[in-house]
Write a protein that binds this DNA or RNA. Structure first.
Length: 209
DNA sequence: CGTGAGATTTCCT
DNA sequence: GGAAATCTCACGT
């Protein structure tokens, strides 16, 4: 099976550069039975330990957020609203507390299994298919990511990120982040322009390139 | 299509 | 005790 994870050094770059670099990359998961899921990353949000009160890491290390303060290139999974999981890519140097929330994916491989994970069965309902991975908790459900994936090393062989070929021609936009009450004005949500899998329009949209 | 309420549990104050 | 980096469904247009 193909397994070309981006190296640890990739995750050490500047938070906002990394956010843009991740767009178009493939988010891959392989299960114990060999079945494989992959999807292009089309939307991410940056959360910084410093000067960003909306970041889980802003007030320092706690049991919940300790993965954020660990080595870059690991998966930080958190539980919220009493029922949902969301996942982040830990960024920057060890101990920094910065991360990128993966907010939306464009399915590539294993769509049937994603449907089963999310809806309990394969469906041809177009509405359900278009809601498969266009939100941070939706994509975690499609990928069967929960508490037990917290802290997984993205340089390992269970869940990883690979360079996507089609990356070059994509235009990138940014906007304010979704669903937060502090740091509302920061344009730290990055997404692929005009991609159908992006979760929401967002506010203050600007072109990055 | 847009809006709004409810679900449900963990974490931190 | 209150808010939470969300989602779904019901209801009105």
């Amino acid at each position: 099976m193909m397994h070309n994870p981006l190296p640890r050094s990739f995750y050490k770059q500047d938070l906002h550069k990394l956010a843009r670099s991740l767009l178009g990359c493939l988010f891959v998961r392989v299960f114990e039975d060999g079945s494989r899921l992959s999807a292009r990353i089309v939307e991410v949000e940056a959360y910084a330990q410093k000067d960003d009160p909306s970041s889980h890491s802003f007030n320092g290390k706690t049991p919940r957020n300790e993965v954020m303060f660990g080595a870059p290139g690991h998966l930080y999974v958190y539980f919220t609203y009493g029922m949902h999981f969301c996942c982040n890519v830990v960024a920057g140097k060890i101990g920094t507390g910065d991360a990128l929330l993966i907010r939306a994916l464009e399915p590539v491989e294993g769509i049937e299994n994603m449907l089963v994970h999310r809806y309990g069965a394969i469906t041809f309902d177009q509405k359900k298919i278009s809601n498969l991975t266009n939100g941070p908790a939706k994509l975690c459900q499609a990928y069967k990511i929960d508490r037990s994936e917290n802290g997984i090393d993205l340089c390992g062989n269970k869940i990883w990120i690979e360079t996507g070929d089609e990356l070059k021609q994509n235009k990138i936009s940014c906007s304010t982040r979704i669903g937060i009450n502090q740091g509302k004005e920061l344009p730290w949500r990055y997404f692929i322009k005009e991609n159908n899998w992006v979760s929401k329009p967002g506010k203050g949209i600007k072109y990055v390139d």
